[in-house]
Structures are given as C-alpha cells and as structure tokens.
Amino acid sequence: MKAKNLISIFILAAALLAGCTKPAPAPSPTPTPSDATPDKVTTASIVDNAAAFEKAIGSSGTWIIAITKDLNIDKELVLDGEFKNGKKDDEGKDIIQRKIALYAQDANRNITARYTLTAPRLTINSPEASIQHGTFKGDLYVSSKNFKLVDATVDGNVYFTADEAKSTFTMDDKSKVTGKQEIKK
C-alpha cells in the first residue's frame, strides 16, 4: 500500500511538473523590464509536512501546492502572492492562478486519493486561487477575487472580507461548505 502511494505521488509530481513547464525564451540582447522579472510559476510544490506547506503558500512560494497526506497545522495560514501558471490566454497574456491541491492523481489525471488540510484559519489573499478535490477543516477568509472551490469541502465557515471577494466566489456542484458564507470585514 505504501509503495502504491509513493508511485502515485511520483506520478502526480511528474504530471504537475510536465504540465507546468514552458520552453526557455531565446536570449535577448537587451533585457527589457519583463525579462528582468523572474517567472515564479513554473514549479509545483509537493509537500507532506506543515513547514513545507507554510513555505509553499507564502508570497515567494509556488503557484500550485499539492499535499501528499492529511496535514494538521495548529496555526493560522495565509495564501499570499500573485502567481502565473505558465500558460497564456487567448490574447497571449500570462494566466494568473494559485491552487491548493488536496489530492493525488495518476498519469491519466484520475484522482487516486483525497486529503484533508486542517487549520484554525486559512486566509486567501492570492488572486484567482482555488482549493481542489479535498477537504479544508477550519474557517476560510477570502480577501481576493475569483476564489473557487473545485470538488472540495470546507468543513467550517467561509468569510469574505470584501464585497468583490464574495461576488466573484464560485464553487462547482461537487463542492460544499458546512458552515455559513458571509461578509465579515
């Protein structure tokens, strides 16, 4: 069973990294301001402990944070920073995205395990963020726009710290919130 979990973790890591990388641009003879800005999006953080999770969700962390087992963290957490996912939209602009992945998947992207992240409070400051395919136990404070739950459960309350955060929040029909959803400024 342990070997199967390890194989699933390695497959998830390989799939995430393969989907997140982009070819290096040709060298430019004269750097432009955009060349000087580091692209902090092309990696994923696969974590199995509280310290690694806390580092990954920080402003100098990664755009996707995937846990590999249930995590219990006894302090408040903050998802900070704006990240690009390495892809472009139809107009050629970088796509902003931040994802907390509470699951494992196989090479065909079938979900093979779901995990629970437990903390007293998780504040979402990153724009275009989501929690996917697992459970967050605790209260969620959403301060950014376009936050999503995708096949995820919040076992607690969801508090929005701004009207825009609430009006742009979405969750699919597989997601649920066990507590209240309200604005709390």
Rank of each mutant, 00 (worst) to 15 (best):
K4Y: 14
L6V: 09
I7R: 13
I9H: 00
F10H: 15
F10A: 15
A14M: 07
L17R: 13
A18P: 00
C20D: 12
K22P: 02
P23I: 11
A24I: 15
P25L: 03
P25E: 03
P25M: 01
A26V: 04
P27W: 13
S28V: 06
S28C: 06
P29A: 05
T30H: 06
T30S: 05
T30G: 00
P31C: 03
T32H: 09
P33N: 02
S34P: 13
D35S: 04
T37F: 12
D39W: 06
K40P: 01
K40R: 11
K40A: 03
K40F: 04
T42A: 04
A44Y: 13
S45C: 11
D48P: 00
A50F: 09
A51G: 02
A51S: 09
A51V: 07
A52E: 07
A52V: 04
F53M: 01
I57D: 01
I57P: 01
S59F: 10
S59D: 14
T62D: 13
I65D: 01
I65R: 04
I65A: 05
I67S: 07
I67L: 10
I67Y: 05
L71A: 08
L71M: 11
I73N: 03
D74P: 07
E76D: 15
E76T: 12
L77Y: 15
V78T: 13
V78M: 08
G81Q: 01
E82K: 15
F83L: 10
K84H: 07
N85A: 08
K87L: 01
D89E: 05
D89M: 03
D90S: 14
E91S: 14
G92D: 10
G92M: 10
G92Q: 10
K93I: 00
D94I: 02
I95M: 10
I96D: 04
Q97N: 15
K99S: 10
K99A: 09
L102H: 03
A104P: 08
A107E: 13
N108E: 15
R109P: 00
R109S: 03
N110K: 11
I111P: 03
I111R: 05
R114F: 12
R114G: 12
R114K: 15
L117H: 13
T118D: 10
A119G: 12
A119C: 10
P120C: 08
R121P: 02
L122R: 08
T123P: 03
I124G: 04
N125Q: 12
N125V: 07
P127M: 06
E128S: 15
A129C: 01
G134N: 00
G134D: 00
T135G: 12
F136V: 12
G138Y: 09
G138N: 08
G138I: 07
L140F: 05
V142H: 13
V142Y: 11
K145S: 12
L149R: 04
V150S: 07
A152F: 11
N157W: 04
V158G: 05
K166Q: 07
K166L: 05
S167Q: 06
T168N: 02
F169P: 08
M171K: 15
M171V: 09
M171F: 11
K174A: 09
K176A: 12
K180M: 12
Q181L: 05
E182Q: 12
E182S: 09
I183P: 05
I183S: 07
K184M: 02
